[in-house]
Amino acid sequence: MYFVADVKENECAKYNCKQCVLFCPEPNCLNFKSGTNSAWVWYDRCKGCEICVYVCSDLLKRHCIEMVMVTPKATAKS
């Protein structure tokens, strides 16, 4: 089981901010999809540090990212 960040894409698409993407310490872990106008997490790369949650919820009060438990099988599919 891994603790990873998960973006609620419908919520995220309402804003055009990309701030979480710019503050993640892992390269290409939080990415931005211009098609849906939302951020998305590459689960295999996420170390679960919650800095994106701090940026989205504490700083910007947008609450679009939550931490979820995933199993290795689920991450392998993504």
Binding site: K18, V21, L22, F23, C24, P25, E26, P27, N28, L30, N31, F32, S34, A39, R45, K47, G48, C49, E50, I51
Partner: peptide, 25 residues
């Protein structure tokens, strides 16, 4: 534009939430 192109750094073994890793990114 970070997060919209393939970055030069790959996955690395630095600790979760390390801001030295962020600076290097």
């Amino acid at each position: 534009q970070m997060g919209q192109f393939k970055e030069l750094v790959e996955e690395h073994p630095m600790c979760a939430g390390c801001y030295m890793a962020y600076f290097i990114r």
